[in-house]
Design a binder for these strands. Structure first.
Lengths: 159, 159
DNA sequence: ACCACATTGTGAAGTACGTTCACGAATGGC
DNA sequence: GCCATTCGTGAACGTACTTCACAATGTGGT
């Protein structure tokens, strides 16, 4: 069991190390093309979900609508997106990728795919498959633990 | 090859999903005890490296000394650390954990170990071992890729 | 002993990301 | 036509970073 605990710690260490490195890489790579992680996230969602009102973006990104306003302001200023009028609802503005924004965003998607390929290349194919499976299991478990913890906190607060 | 690419993408997806969930969990858990990720990071380093001047903390955390000043200000205000005078260098202040800070920080280490155990429990022992190995390999590769990319950028800038 | 240089920490100012609260404008159900 | 809801944003704030400038201190060379 001492051995298992050891491996579990190694696993978590590896995971943390990967997350730290990935984030730093992402941030520097994005900075090179004039983007920040949060703004890139918006672009990403616009590619995935098409032109949307800010409300929808806020839901998709799980941030407040107010925050989306700021992010879109910056992206608009830098020429990545425009705010188009909604055809029927005059309150809503539809955030749309410019040509340049679309190019950049598509490049991000391609870059991500390429990174996945490069990473996978250092492991045998069957390992990659097993790894992907196991990570999914771990992610599920982590979600479950998080949900439980949140429920416990809510209970505590409610009492 | 289509199959391999697919698994590679699944791998990266799983990794990203784990990182997102882990970070959110961490942040909410820390907030419950009056800490932020950045401040917890300082506490963590103080447990690992013992009482240190801010300069050393800045190096360990890979942030600017100025930033450490702010983090230590907050931790001091909230009673997690104190600034003690350096025995020989009157410029330096040695950041030291208070009793409360030490308790909290030790709890963080324990919580991390417990999380590792809980996560590992959902997979067979041999899988955990393999997973830890593979993640280390991936982390190494990612570091290598990042280093290469940075070198390429430096070259480009130098020309 | 002295001077040049390096180091430690911090004030000032700026950027990014996120929040809450309040509010005007537009929608939509009844 | 009215009232509740929704969409976006101004104002104000908290946190985490950065760079630049600077005073106080430490240190090595002559």
């Amino acid at each position: 069991m001492g051995c298992m605990t050891d491996d579990a710690t190694r696993l978590l260490d590896g995971l943390l190390r990967l997350t730290v490195t990935m984030e730093r890489d992402m941030a520097t790579g994005l900075a090179a093309i004039g983007l920040t992680p949060a703004r890139a996230h918006v672009l990403w969602e616009l590619v995935a979900g098409g032109p949307q009102p800010q409300q929808a973006l806020a839901r998709a990104l799980e941030v407040t609508p107010r925050n989306v306003t700021g992010l879109v302001d910056a992206l608009e200023r830098d020429g990545f997106v425009t705010r188009e009028p909604h055809p029927t609802d005059r309150r809503a503005a539809i955030v749309t990728l410019t040509d340049r924004g679309d190019e950049i965003a598509t490049g991000l998607v391609a870059g991500r795919r390429e990174l996945a390929g490069q990473l996978a290349r250092v492991l045998p194919d069957d390992r990659v498959t097993a790894l992907a499976d196991d990570l999914a299991v771990l992610a599920d478990e982590l979600d479950r633990l998080a949900t439980d913890a949140a429920a416990a906190r809510t209970d505590g607060a409610a009492r």
